[in-house]
Write a protein that binds this DNA or RNA. Structure first.
Length: 676
RNA sequence: GGCGGCGUAGCUCAGGUGGUUAGAGCGACGGUCUCAUAAUCCGUAGGUCGUUGGUUCGAGUCCAACCGCCGCCA
């Protein structure tokens, strides 16, 4: 019996189409799963979609679809992206599948029978967006989480006795320090639990798009209980079928559950409590990664700065995206994505680095040894430099294993690429092309040794990198004349396994250099997609997700989305005339609750008074702004920020990394004056 | 407000339990080879290690305060 390894991604909520943020999580898990398989583990890799809840119900209604139609579409979009990216998931669970629904009900029964569920009444505010009861605020208040209006509800609900698990959870975090990683997330969770746990409402009766509570069909089960349960329902928990039960016995508990940092509480507090209440084993570890930011800002649909994975796949391929995300970002921390950095990494590390090393090494073996791996001399023609490469290879193998085991992808890759650099240097110093000119025996032996050493190091880097860049490493292995990379037993990787006389395959560039147009092409594709999306669904805001950020006046982030009229970036006078810039006077200014950077302003532009939400709270005190004359973009489409409609945008200078400064006039100008 | 974290070269980051001239990669600049994907290789770039105090023979590395950024507080 081989060791098993069960790994899960979060199941993605179908309120948004997949983007590279989702891809990031999935790629990390796929890399881990591929590596575990190479290490010989009986690996099970689960992903899927989370499809219930009021938010989906309403989004479907707005789109004139049934919830099932909507979720079918979006779930399929996720699945086809994973397929296109070659994600090696073993099962794809959807929470609207019967197998899931029945087993969630079984879980509910189990917890209820164990005495951890009771019926009670809840009166208070509810945030539909977050699917959350917000106790801290009164009627009419906005959600402290997302700033959207809350609704007052009176509900008879089922409650989960979360309060009973306070001590057990704290003991868990203490006894098993690796249960939550990285440590900063663990600290947060511990302080949260220490501050006391209240019982959790785990049913809803105000909407119906969910799983019915067993024996009480007026209620549906809380979406988080529903969603979290996927990790066990997918592998057979609660199924009457014998084979399913065996599967569950075999794979549960999960070895690693990967999540994003925004859902830490659900996975590190509620989830283990649910499992304890049901008498089930707990996962070995939960790892929370950071957010993928787009040029400094959180990527989210409402900000209009989403980058689709497809764009990158089309231009550079899946391996480029995989390598970039895992090499560039310190796993666990937030990371920044930009097309610039992507192409930079691709060219430097993949094209110039690994790709070029493969190319030069293999080409020379083809030329000087008729495509057969030469014999490395152990005698007269051997030099210390050859052994140095062998030693470094051994060291690289062991360090890479350690770092990958700790999910330190960026450092693991950095280490592996250190070997690439060393071999490049070794080749230059030993000048195989010069040796190839000579026919004497000594030179011949030397040449064989140098090329063997290079090819063998190349093989080792390729094997180590395979879980990260599976497509290209498979090609390189084929060119090296080796078998299936993914079946190579990684734990047995060592120096000297490349056999004398191995016949090379056809040598071909694996990572063609990306030229300057690559960035442009990707940006154009994103723009086209953005405008298509806008036309298709003008009211996309309703169910959009994510954190609103401070933008002066709430304009969409400057990003790949900003439209450019002509190819050289210049606009005509007519284009400029479309922008209605006017002088206005601030009448009212106040802070927006729950937002550090936003002010709500009422601006008099002569003909009317506009409400504008502006991200200038860091620079200006509200009172200091009253009566001040400012420039406003008067014909900007209205946009909601923190639940407040913003009608226009205040013009400000926004220095890179600095705080915005309002545009103003030295002379007095009447309100309503147009700028042109 | 409470708790926690971060602030090191243009950029992204390393720098266990304090100890020689503070490191790497990328970018930039200059040079080199020619097997290779105008790739490789070599050299250069001198950053008050957020600020100010303190502990110490000696502090990015410990302590305090402050400034800035961020996360969690259902």
């Amino acid at each position: 019996m081989s060791r098993k390894f069960y790994i899960t991604t979060p199941i993605y909520y179908v309120n948004a189409r997949p983007h590279i943020g989702h891809a990031y999580t999935t790629i990390a898990c796929d890399t881990i799963a591929r590596r575990q398989r190479m290490l010989g583990a009986d690996t099970f890799f689960l992903t899927g979609t989370d499809e219930h809840g009021q938010k989906i119900e309403r989004a479907a209604q707005a789109a004139g679809k049934t919830p099932q139609e909507l979720t079918n579409e979006v779930s399929a979009a996720f699945r086809s992206l994973w397929d296109r990216m070659g994600i090696t998931y073993d099962d794809y669970i959807r929470t609207t599948e019967d197998r899931h629904k029945l087993r969630v009900q079984e879980l509910f029964r189990r917890i209820r029978n164990n005495g951890y569920i009771y019926k009670g009444t809840y009166t208070g505010q509810y945030c539909v967006y977050d699917e959350l009861y917000v106790d801290a605020v009164g009627p009419g208040a906005d959600c402290p989480e997302c700033g959207r209006p809350t609704e007052t509800v009176h509900e008879e609900n089922y409650f989960f006795k979360l309060s009973a698990f306070e001590d057990k959870l704290l003991r868990l975090y203490t006894d098993q320090p690796d249960f939550i990683r990285p440590e900063t997330r663990r600290n947060e969770v511990m302080s949260f639990v220490r501050s006391g746990l209240r019982d959790l409402s785990i049913s809803r009766s105000t909407f119906s798009w969910g799983i019915l509570v067993p024996d009480d069909p007026k209620h549906v089960i809380y979406v988080w209980l529903d969603a979290l349960a996927n990790y066990i329902t997918a592998i057979g928990f609660g199924s009457p079928d014998q084979a399913d039960q065996q599967k569950f016995e075999k794979y549960w508990p999960a070895d690693l559950q990967m999540i994003g940092k925004e859902i830490v509480r659900f996975h590190c507090v509620y989830w283990p409590a649910f499992l304890m209440a049901a008498g089930l084993a707990l996962p070995h570890g939960i790892m929370a990664h950071g957010w993928l930011l787009f040029e400094e800002n959180k990527m989210s649909k409402s900000r209009g700065n989403i980058v689709r994975a497809e764009t990158i796949l089309d231009v550079l391929g899946a391996d480029a995206l995989r390598y970039f995300l895992l090499r560039e970002i310190v796993f666990g921390q937030d990371g920044s994505f930009s097309f610039d950095a992507l192409v930079q990494r691709y060219n430097a590390d993949l094209a110039n680095g690994l790709g070029n090393l493969a190319s030069r090494t293999l080409t020379m073996i083809a030329r000087y040894f008729r495509s057969e791996v030469p014999y490395p001399s152990h005698t007269a023609a051997r030099r210390p430099a050859d052994d140095a490469i062998a030693d470094l290879s051994r060291k690289t193998i062991s360090e890479c294993h350690t770092l990958f085991d700790q999910y330190q992808f960026s450092r693991a890759l950095e280490t592996a690429w250190g070997l690439v650099a060393a071999v490049d240097k070794y080749i230059v110093e030993n000048e195989p092309w010069a040796l190839g000119e000579k026919q004497d025996e000594e030179s011949r032996a030397r040449l064989g040794t140098v090329l063997y050493t290079s090819a063998e190091a190349l093989r080792i880097v390729t094997a180590l990198a395979h879980p990260v860049i599976p497509d290209s490493t498979t090609k390189i292995w084929a060119q090296l004349g080796l078998g299936e990379t993914k079946k190579f037993p990684l734990s047995e990787l060592k120096w000297g396994q490349l056999h004398l006389g191995t016949k090379l395959g056809n040598v071909q560039a694996v990572f063609p250099r990306a030229d300057k147009t690559a960035i442009e092409r990707m940006q154009k594709m994103e723009e086209r997609d953005a405008s298509a999306a806008t036309e298709a669904q003008p009211a996309a805001g309703s169910a959009s997700g994510g954190t609103f950020a401070a933008q002066v006046g709430g304009a969409p982030a400057t990003s790949a989305r900003s439209a450019v009229s002509s190819s050289d970036g210049k606009i005509s006078i007519d284009d400029f005339a479309k922008i209605d810039l006017r002088v206005g006077q601030i009448r009212v200014a106040e802070r927006v609750k729950g937002a550090d950077k936003l002010l709500r302003l009422e601006v008099d532009i002569g003909t009317e008074v506009r409400q504008v939400v502006a991200g200038i709270a860091e620079t200006y005190e509200p009172d200091s702004l009253i009566g001040r004359k400012v420039v406003i973009v008067a014909n900007l489409a209205p946009r909601k920020l923190r639940g407040l409609e913003s009608n226009g945008m205040i013009v400000a200078a926004s220095p890179e990394g600095g705080k915005p400064v309002l545009c103003s006039f030295l002379e007095d100008v009447p309100m309503g004056t147009r700028l042109k």
